[in-house]
Design a protein around this nucleic acid. Sequence first.
DNA 1: ACAATTATGAAAATGAATTGCAATTTCATA
DNA 2: TATGAAATTGCAATTCATTTTCATAATTGT
Lengths: 149, 149
Amino acid sequence: MNKHGEAIAQFTKHKSTHGLKSSDKRSFVVDHFIQADRHFTVEELYFEVKKLRPEISYSTVYRALKLLAKCGLASESMFGEAVSRYEPVHSSAHHDHLICNRCGRIIEFENDKIEKLQKDVARNYDFLVSAHRLELYGLCKKCRRKKNR
Amino acid sequence: MNKHGEAIAQFTKHKSTHGLKSSDKRSFVVDHFIQADRHFTVEELYFEVKKLRPEISYSTVYRALKLLAKCGLASESMFGEAVSRYEPVHSSAHHDHLICNRCGRIIEFENDKIEKLQKDVARNYDFLVSAHRLELYGLCKKCRRKKNR
DNA sequence: ACAATTATGAAAATGAATTGCAATTTCATA
DNA sequence: TATGAAATTGCAATTCATTTTCATAATTGT
C-alpha cells in the first residue's frame, strides 16, 4: 500500500475507534490534503477545495484539518506568522524547515547531527524534550537569483 | 557602560534619528523591559507595569514593545502559541530556546555546532539564511520531578 | 508662549480561530 | 425500507489578541 493509502487507512481507523461517521465532503478535504502532501493554512486548503467542490464550507475544511491533527496525520505549526499551517505528518522522520521570506516556499529537511546535538543541549539543562522546531528563514535558490529585482 | 545602559542609549539614538519625542510613560515601560531582561507578552508586561504605574495603558505598552522591536532591542516571536512574545535582543550572540510545556519557563541557550550544521544544510539547498529559530519543547528540570502529580 | 508634531488612552476595527445551533446526513437496527 | 440516535455541515455569532483610529495631552523647536 502506498503512503497515501496508509494515511487514508489510518484516518478510517481513527474514525471507527472514535465513533465518527463517513462523509463525502470531509473525505474529499482529507484526500485532497493527503494527496497534495504539503503545507496549508486553513484558508489555502479551503480555496483549493472550493474550486472543485464549491459546496464545501470553510468550517468543514477547518474541522477536517483539526481532525487530521488529532489523529496524527497533520501537525499544526505557526511559522512565526499569525496563522496556523497544517503539514502532513510522515510516519517516517521528523523534519525541519527552510522558509523563503520572499516566495513563501517551505523546504523540508532532516539532519541527524542536529537532532543529536539538540539532545545534548537538553541533557545539559536536565530538560526532557517532547518536540522541537527548527526553522531557517531566508531566500531560496530561485529567489536568490532575483534578489535585486 | 553596562548592558542596560547601552540598550537605553540605543533607544535614545533611535528616537532622535526618527524624530520621536520623549515620554515618561514610554520610558518607564522601556526601562522595565530592559531591566527585566526576559520574555514578555504584551499583556504580561502591561500587568507588571500597571502595578507600579496604573496610569499607563495597554496601548502604551503595546506601542513601546513594537518600537523596541523596530529599533532592534526586542524581537517578536510566536512560540507556537497564539500570542506574540517579545524578548530582549542581546547585541551578543543569537540564542535558541528550551520551552517548558508545563510551567512556561523559557531557557535560552547557544550552540555553535548546531549553528554550523544549519549553515551546512542551507548551503546544500542553495538557501541564503537571514534568521533562524530553534525551539525545544518539553519539561524543564523542576517540572520533570512533579511530572506525575 | 506659540505652533507643529508626537504620545497617550479609550474605544473601535481587524482578522483568524473557534463554537452554537438548526438542518441535514449517516448508519446500525428494526 | 423505515426509524432514530448520533455525527456532520453551513452559517452566523463569538472570542481573543493585535492593530488602528481619533480626540486630547504632552513635548520640542523657535
